[in-house]
């Protein structure tokens, strides 16, 4: 009985346990790893794409996917750089509004024309990336407003702003997912869209909502990133889709849809962040890092597929 409990606990919290084991190993290897600066650093690094992970988790739970998130992040960054002369607030709103718009377009095309989202967002990914290159005139644009960088450089209790925004977003969307009607609808649609329709759930609206939230978060991440780098370029976010999808799946959310939570997705991105941090501390070349991230994604989908297969026979 007790053994069963322990086994269940390990199964439920395996990601956190892996992070812990990895952390202990790294703490022995490097004195720097467990310092406050480094831990904040890990969170700071993951906070940008981490916001997108929240949206991607919602989308995967509802049974859709968005490959355009990297381009949308670059789009948000570019808009917030371009709109800086009109004030910081305008710049922030422009970046976020741009993200929401692309999310709305993705959602409308996918649901109203009944197309597979993976193909649609492949198209919008290329399209939006082209738009970003066009509005930045294929250059790296610098921000005009010196105060704009304050949105990321401001710290609260030595914790940078993006981390705080990231944590707030996690809490908000976990509550939306677990405690509200729209959250229940997301699970229902992801579990069985046809049955949901019979129960009177507006399936299309739920899906469009998830696409818009993903767009919103990708735009927000772009604005934050523009604040950090103070530049915009079409090169931003090229690997983001791989990174974000890996994080969601790594957290244990299945591609099958219908189940998962934001805290799971958070564990996934945290594990990726720790792995990345470890690779930097161990001075592994960035090329090998890219390879490892690719391998990790393949490994994770394979494990996901095997466990889904297993469940079918239980």
């Amino acid at each position: 009985m007790k053994l069963e409990k322990i086994r269940n606990f390990i199964n439920e919290q395996k990601i956190l346990l892996i992070i812990l084991v990895l952390g202990v190993f790294l703490a022995f290897d490097s004195d720097y790893f467990l310092t406050f600066t480094n831990i904040v650093n890990i969170f700071h690094t993951i906070s940008y794409e981490g916001m997108i992970v929240i949206g991607m988790a919602l989308l995967i739970i509802v049974g859709e996917i968005d490959l355009s998130v990297g381009s949308v992040m670059a789009f948000g960054a570019a808009l917030s750089i371009i709109f800086q002369p009109y004030g910081i607030l305008t710049a922030i709103i422009a970046g976020i509004a741009g993200g929401i718009t692309i999310g709305l377009i993705n959602g409308l095309i996918t649901t109203k024309l009944k197309l597979p989202s993976i193909a649609v967002t492949l198209g919008t990914m290329v399209f939006v990336s082209g738009v970003v290159f066009a509005i930045t005139k294929e250059h790296t644009l610098k921000g005009a407003n010196e105060n704009f960088v304050l949105i990321t450089q401001t710290e609260l209790f030595r914790i940078p702003m993006p981390v705080i925004v990231f944590i707030i977003m996690i809490i908000i969307f976990e509550i939306i997912l677990q405690r509200t009607i729209i959250g229940r609808h997301i699970f229902a649609v992801g579990g069985n869209a046809i049955a949901s329709k019979f129960f009177g759930i507006k399936v299309d609206s739920v899906r469009i909502f998830c696409f818009m939230i993903t767009g919103f978060l990708a735009g927000l991440a772009g604005v934050m990133l523009a604040g950090k780098l103070n530049v915009a370029s079409g090169r931003i976010g090229e690997d983001s889709a791989v990174f974000v999808i890996t994080a969601v799946l790594l957290g244990g959310i299945s591609m099958e849809g219908g189940e998962g939570s934001i805290s799971k997705a958070f564990q996934g991105i945290l594990l990726l962040g720790v792995i990345n941090n470890a690779m930097v501390i161990l001075k592994i070349s960035s090329f090998i890092q890219e390879m490892i991230r690719g391998l990790l994604l393949i490994l994770i989908v394979v494990i996901d597929a095997i466990s889904v297969e297993k469940k079918k026979y239980l």
């Binding site: 999808i245 994604l297 393949i298």
Partner: peptide, 17 residues
């Protein structure tokens, strides 16, 4: 039996690295 887009998105990173 996994989605080929996701797998080859992973091998894209793998071979590019």
């Amino acid at each position: 039996k996994v989605n080929s887009i996701i797998v080859t998105l992973g091998s894209l990173s793998l071979f590019s690295g």
